[in-house]
Design a protein around this nucleic acid. Structure first.
Lengths: 329, 329
DNA sequence: TTGTACGCGTTATCAC
DNA sequence: GTGATAACGCGTACAA
């Protein structure tokens, strides 16, 4: 049984297909009575406006593609909120793609979005190398959110500043041995490490970096190795809250109290970090605002494809909770 | 500057459009050399396969639509993981729609998905009334995940069992005054309240229900009213972890210790609940498995549209952590 | 491998 | 101003 088509509605309503089309889009040139009649017939026949055909006819849509790295990370929910708000304000539809564990598939996600002929793509947390991202942006306008990609519109938070804020907070408390739990090295995500190193160097201290993954369990395992070694640090700065949680897991398993025995700082100010029992000191990068900025840039780009790449940088802020305190003596 | 089309690639490669089409779909009937040549030309011209046109030509795709109620709730990330796994195993694309604050828009999300002519929709956490959901399922096959909708394929966890488990856990610890923080009343989400009431009645106790929202802050405000009243309870069972977190927020603000002064049980076993400092006792409904089941049902439905509505029920399990303990004496 | 008739709306161009 | 006609967008499928 074939689907109900616009032709069916037109025939049943005794009008032309063109008129049905206009009626369904609230366009001018249809008398109110006819419009109501057409929609009523459509409803009765169970017709659903076919966006696929519509898009083909209009050669691409005004919709925005959205890429989100990871649904398990609350940060991306905040970014999405911001993107959606702006999209709604401008009457833009959203088409989503979610990243996978393995980052190779980020490229496939972008290609899929491009295949749906969205007007532009807002990508939050893309792990693709700069060069590849640039290639993609040549086909469909791309806006990098929460990351800076040279030559591509970017709305990001200054990670150098944030990492510095976190590290200096620990140093001000009196810590001397602060270890940084870094994300896997990738284009666009090195500034947190740099900010940390700069802050440590500024205090005349030797930086110590442990490279981990994004998975809480693996971070905990890495932390176990660190704290079972001969020279455990008194403080840890983790590249994001998820990782910080892995560190907290380990501390708890060892019977160590965060904020007293060991200080921990995260990054992102995701909702976990504000749970009263966790009370993780962290860096807030104001995800919703970043999302809004990214969406705005994407929309601007669709009306001016040839403008120079735009940049919007914001400064993150330190949120002090209870996982940081002076080192034990 | 018009986009590169398949025709352009065909002309440049010196072959027919049909052959280009075959080459891009890895179909049979194209010599390896030709295929490579075609793809190479396409790459050079910056051609991206147009899924919109492709879908129209094939009258709808085999893609699955996915509706997720709320990205801020970790549960839906787990459900999505399960859905994606199965979709990948079957080579199905996924098209996403995310719910809004106001539930009226759930219907709009479904209509949008139907407009993209997906083969079926897997809806996790739909807040639509049963009747409306049924109407939608008549147009495009619908699978309800984490909720039972009569007459619609449903993969759900037995909330009666879960709520009973939670309440009886508290009763076994010796609590007599257990308050239930209920979600706003809606079709498909009443069983947790029923399970709670059944367990209370079974122990000869009077149930007390407070209706709240899904927002952590509002729950905290509601909890404040409850604990500032003359007869605060010794235990709270919240309809989900987010709400439980709101209760924990309030307890912390009042200087009360969860598990000692007041016991709290959540629902969902989302990742917040397992943070070491939070250690929320909760009910695990095994989201990933539910997602897998839902996706499987959706795929089965596409090959047998007229089979009777399928049902898959699973039993949730209690996860005891540290927010529950005997009542203070 | 190719020619070509679809699929299903949209958008001029016209007629009343 | 209302409504109809027909060409068009871009792949896919099937016969040749």
């Amino acid at each position: 049984m074939p689907r109900t088509t616009m032709e069916d509605v037109a025939r049943e309503a005794g009008v032309s297909r063109a008129l049905v089309s206009l009626a369904y889009r609230n366009a001018f040139g249809v008398s109110e009575a006819t419009r109501r009649h057409i929609l009523e017939v459509g409803e009765r026949l169970g017709y659903v406006h076919n966006r696929v055909a519509a898009q083909l006819a209009t050669r691409g849509s005004s919709a925005l593609g959205v890429f989100l790295q990871d649904l398990h990370n609350d940060l991306f929910a905040g970014l999405y909120d911001g993107i959606r708000e702006v999209a709604e304000e401008h009457g833009r539809e959203l088409v989503l793609a979610i990243g996978s564990r393995d980052e190779d598939r980020d490229a496939a996600s972008l290609t899929t979005l491009q295949g749906t002929r969205v007007a532009a793509i807002v990508a939050a947390g893309l792990r693709l190398p700069d060069a590849e991202a640039l290639t993609h942006s040549a086909r469909t306008p791309l806006v990098a959110v929460a990351r800076r990609i040279p030559g591509v519109d970017s709305a990001y938070s200054d990670n150098l500043v944030g990492a510095r804020l976190a590290t200096e907070h620990l140093l001000a408390l009196g810590h001397r041995d602060v270890v940084f739990f870094a994300n896997p090295p990738a284009d666009g995500y090195r500034d947190r490490g740099r900010g940390y190193e700069a802050a440590m160097a500024g205090a005349g201290l030797r930086p110590r970096t442990v490279v981990t993954s994004y998975a809480r369990e693996e971070v905990a395992a890495e932390a176990a190795r660190l704290f079972d070694a001969v020279d455990p640090p008194t403080a840890v700065f983790a590249h994001n809250d998820q990782a910080a949680l892995g560190v907290l897991d380990l501390l708890h398993a060892r019977g160590l109290t965060p904020g007293a025995d060991v200080s921990v700082v995260g990054y992102d100010n995701s909702s976990i970090s504000s749970a009263p029992g966790t009370a993780l000191t962290t860096i807030d990068l104001h995800g919703r605002d970043l999302g809004r900025a990214g969406a705005r840039m994407a929309i601007a780009r669709t009306s001016d494809p040839d403008a120079a790449p735009a940049l919007e940088v914001s400064d993150p802020t330190l949120v002090v909770r209870r996982t940081t305190g002076p080192p034990p003596r």
